[in-house]
């Protein structure tokens, strides 16, 4: 039997909003450590990896590791039926062909129960090497979302270049060009407003803004976003997920292959 209860059900709603437009179908790998998902988009240009730790749930039981293959847009539609303050419980028998979702309203007066069919997905896994990155930038996630949205008006690709204490996003297209320059902040008064850059060597790389704007749908999950870049390896965009009492619940990590000169 697999059963996972999350009092802060809104986290699960936001995770599905953050991945459903990028990946149609994916499998949740559930083990005693927690729930994880890894899937590429259909073009194999980007990949999303989600991790939710077992001890981040309010109740977590996983007798045997199970793989729950699902259509994510269906799951997202069901999760839209849950209120933002609802407790969400996922339940699946070990050899079942469906998963049950239970939504309990805060005042315990209302309980909803939905069943979603499971799918047999022969998902291919990618081995992602743990490489040290030349550049890591931590910045406010809403700033990253706005920059990607603004620059997509100008062109379909952004060139990210990093110096010691600043990061530059540049785009150009038929109507013209645009650049956004962010300087590293000193000790910002609010940590979530800070921009911090650690650079081993300068980089300059280009990426398709279409995918970055998909990634930015994870913005509601985390006040900060972390960008990791190295020459000629995919970009990593990571949103760490903490719950209300600030403990680490997991992360959403996106990988994006670069665009290179012909």
């Amino acid at each position: 039997m697999f059963e996972a209860k999350l009092i802060q059900g809104a986290i699960l709603k936001k995770i599905l909003d953050a991945i459903k437009d990028l990946v149609n179908e994916a499998s949740w790998d559930c083990s005693s450590q927690g729930m994880s998902l890894q899937a590429m988009d259909t073009s194999h240009v980007s990949l999303v990896a989600v991790q939710m730790k077992a001890d981040g749930f309010d109740k977590y039981r996983c007798d045997r590791s199970v793989t729950l293959g699902m259509n994510l847009s269906s799951l997202s539609k069901i999760l839209k039926c849950a209120g933002n303050d609802d407790t969400i419980t996922l339940k699946a028998p070990d050899d079942g062909d469906k998963i049950t979702l239970v939504f309990e309203a805060k005042n315990e007066s209302e309980t909803s129960e939905y069943e979603v069919k499971l799918m047999n997905l022969d998902s291919e896994y990618l081995g992602i090497p743990d490489t040290p990155y030349s550049v890591n930038v931590k910045m406010p996630s809403h700033k990253f979302q706005r920059i990607c949205r603004d620059l997509q008006q100008i062109g379909d690709a952004v060139t990210i270049s990093c110096a010691k204490d600043s990061i530059r996003f540049a785009a150009k297209g038929d109507l013209g060009s645009g650049t956004v320059n962010l300087c590293q902040t000193a000790s910002a008064d609010k940590p979530e407003d800070s921009v911090s850059i650690s650079m081993q060597e300068p980089i300059i790389q280009s990426f398709a803004l279409k995918y970055l704007n998909h990634f930015a749908k994870a913005t509601p999950l985390s006040p900060q976003v972390s960008l990791s870049l190295s020459p000629d390896v995919p970009l990593v965009v990571e949103y760490s997920i903490t719950d209300d009492d600030g403990s680490d619940f997991g992360y959403i990590r996106y990988y994006l292959a670069p665009k290179i000169d012909e």
Binding site: V45, L47, A157, A257, I260
Partner: peptide, 14 residues
């Protein structure tokens, strides 16, 4: 013009 690379060129597919 820039060519879009694929993840399979960087990560090993199992």
């Amino acid at each position: 013009l820039k060519k879009q690379k694929l993840l399979n060129e960087y990560f090993h597919v199992f």
